[in-house]
């Protein structure tokens, strides 16, 4: 079974004036289609306002589609009775580390999710330990979250999601407010989860160097998928990416410029090694 299956999803924001009359209807999602297999790492790129976050919020039923359907592990997000089941399967990490930590002690924050769904206490403690260890934050378990760095806070937030034992984790620009070290910490923690536990990852970001290890990339613009493919295929289309106002990794851009200047290089070069090998020939 597919872990995520979005078919022709439309989401409309209705703007109303002071009297409540409809002023305008904006389509944040415009017939969006996307399929994710279990265990994949998927990246979604797109400039601000392209609909990435609106789409992410459909994946655990924070928003419901105006048209079309979203299935998570075969469950339709519109079935209210299944809401808890859906949110246990699809966990979300948001952008601002300070907005998603609620407890005064790290380990209590991580235990908050499982506690809410009635997991027995000893099982909660097992999960808290397992998840904090998996993101390398176990030794901070009795610390206060407000003394942690941004990257550490995001790792605690990820542990909190992990304690729910989800099949899929959605990161909505979870590294946007972090420094380079923090970004690396979060990316390593997430890739490790994918490799060791087979958790599906949906990674929404502006940082291109974070997505070159993804299995598949979707590029969104104006509420639609405008490009999709493997990282190599996507980053072969430098001009098109720039049209959508997206970055290209520096090495890819350099290869593209050298090619335009007449050097015989293949498309879609992503790493320093690939470009050095190609130049050697």
């Amino acid at each position: 079974m597919k872990i995520v299956e979005a078919k022709n999803v439309v989401y409309e924001y209705i703007k109303r004036d002071e009297e409540g009359n409809v002023e305008s209807i904006e389509k944040a999602l415009d017939h969006m289609n996307l399929v994710v297999e279990p265990g994949q790492v998927i990246a979604i790129l797109g400039q601000n306002g392209s609909g990435k976050s609106t789409f992410a919020k459909h994946l655990n039923a924070l928003l419901l589609p105006s048209e079309g359907s979203v299935l998570i592990d075969g469950l339709n997000v519109e079935e209210e009775r299944k809401l808890n089941a859906i949110r246990q399967r699809a966990g979300m990490v948001f952008q601002n580390p300070d907005n998603q930590i609620i407890a005064a002690v790290v380990q209590e924050d991580v235990g908050f999710g499982p506690e809410n769904i009635g997991i027995p206490a000893d099982e909660i403690w097992k999960r808290v330990e397992k998840s904090l260890r998996s993101v390398g934050m176990w030794k901070y378990r009795t610390h206060s979250p407000n003394k942690l760095s941004g990257g550490q806070k995001q790792r605690v937030a990820i542990a909190g999601v992990m304690a729910m034992e989800p099949k899929c984790v959605i990161l909505d620009e979870a590294t946007a407010m972090l420094d380079p070290n923090g970004r690396r910490e979060v990316k390593d923690a997430i890739m490790d989860l994918n490799r060791r536990k087979g958790v599906t990852i949906i990674w929404i970001t502006h940082f291109m160097e974070e997505v070159i290890d993804a299995d598949y990339i979707y590029v969104m613009d104006a509420g639609k998928v405008v490009m999709e493919g493997t990282p190599h295929a996507i980053f072969s289309r430098v001009d098109e990416l720039q049209e959508h106002r997206l970055d290209v990794p520096q090495i890819t851009l350099l290869a593209h410029e050298l090619k335009q200047a007449g050097m015989p290089l293949p498309d879609g070069i992503l790493t320093i090694e690939e470009l050095a090998d190609a130049l050697r020939k």
Binding site: Q47, N48, Q95, A176, R245
Partner: peptide, 8 residues
Amino acid sequence: TAGLDPRG
């Protein structure tokens, strides 16, 4: 530029 997209 913290938190802005590439265009911003």
